[in-house]
Design a protein around this nucleic acid. Structure first.
Lengths: 201, 201
DNA sequence: CAGCAATCGAACCGATCGGTACCATCTTCG
DNA sequence: CGAAGATGGTACCGATCGGTTCGATTGCTG
């Protein structure tokens, strides 16, 4: 049966369903861990539909990573903004958000970084560079508003902490305190970089 | 021709050649990026030889990762020990060693962590956990000797910095200063954790 | 010299891969 | 109502995958 009885036949919705299922499956099993056929079966679509929407598996991966980066960056940015205008509070909020992420049973690290690690080339690698660049923009803004004398340096240090915490939480989280440790380190680095070293714990 | 004229026919040496070439190729192109056939062609061996030595591709990967972990940990440990008994100097030496690693044109991140990211299961994931555990042992020793009140916490923070620096250097190194920034952050964290906050730059 | 271990090269296996083609059927829109 | 577009289902393509088998040939060892 080519198309079900009451299907709304909405290309946009079909594309979204493909994207959603692909995001989930590719994250859980890796880019090479799930084939196009299985993906189509899981979403209830045909291969022709997938290739009409995304052109190739690489195109699908590209779309998945772009959407995921948008979602993650927006999520962290909103978490930071909601924590008020204090840079330290925003930073703390970011790591608190990361803590809830790490605690999810489905957590497997950062999908974009993972993808770039699996396929050291297009489209994953440029996507990861862009993704980390967006992180850096967010962190540089916080570092600047905190009064750091070298906001770019502090931002890059904080980026390393976030990325490192994400990888460690994925592969070596012994007690679930990874994000909390990273948060304290981030606040320490912020304090050092802004000259206030003797803050109350 | 089954075996060349003047070949020494040394099983140990054959195994070592397989291991060496596999280490190089799998690191550069990923675990799924190079097939067993190509690997054998590159090393000038037959598939039967490979399977007699390692049993399966998974066994080969396991041996590659174990050897690599040994080499990397020994390298960093020696770099730290050579820098004298001062904990801060040892830490600085570790990040200096990382800097030279990141600067290599062949650098593609940590092979063991990359492998665990590509294949979220055995044998790569346990290998990564062991590898990071060895890092943690080294760092905990330094943190303890530095007089940190919570050496395990500091060690985990330093681990995140190392891992994060390695990932960032791989995917988002804009100016080659990643290791230097990480080094400064590590020394700052060490100073904060040991109570000496006003050190000379 | 004789027997055994090691090796290469090649053929072969079933499975899976990404991707294409075709068709019947359904919705959508004029 | 009728044409056009979207879709699921299926079969198919060539390539490659990890892994096995076999025979010819050589080095090693007693």
């Amino acid at each position: 049966m080519p198309v079900a009885k009451g299907t709304p036949l909405d290309p946009g919705r079909t594309r979204e369903a493909l994207l959603s299922t692909a995001t989930d499956l590719l994250y859980r099993r890796g880019l090479d861990g799930v084939g196009v056929s299985e993906l189509c079966t899981a979403v209830g679509a045909s291969k022709e539909t997938l290739y009409r929407h995304f052109g190739s598996k690489e195109g699908l991966v590209d779309a998945v990573l772009a959407a995921r980066s948008d979602r993650v960056v927006r999520w962290l940015t909103e978490a930071a903004h909601a924590a008020g205008p204090e840079p330290a509070a925003e930073l703390a909020a970011i790591f608190d958000a990361l803590a809830t992420w790490y605690a999810e049973p489905e957590f497997r690290g950062c999908a974009i970084v993972n993808a770039a690690t699996q396929r050291h080339g297009a489209p994953a690698r440029p996507a990861a560079a862009r993704h980390l660049g967006r992180y850096l923009t967010l962190l540089t803004d916080i570092a600047t508003r905190a009064g750091s004398d070298q906001p770019q340096r502090l931002a890059r240090q904080l980026l390393m902490l976030i990325v490192g915490a994400t990888v460690v939480a994925d592969h070596h989280d012994t007690d679930g305190r990874t994000a909390a440790y990273a948060k304290q380190a981030a606040l320490d680095l912020l304090a050092v970089a802004t000259g206030r070293e003797g803050e109350p714990a």
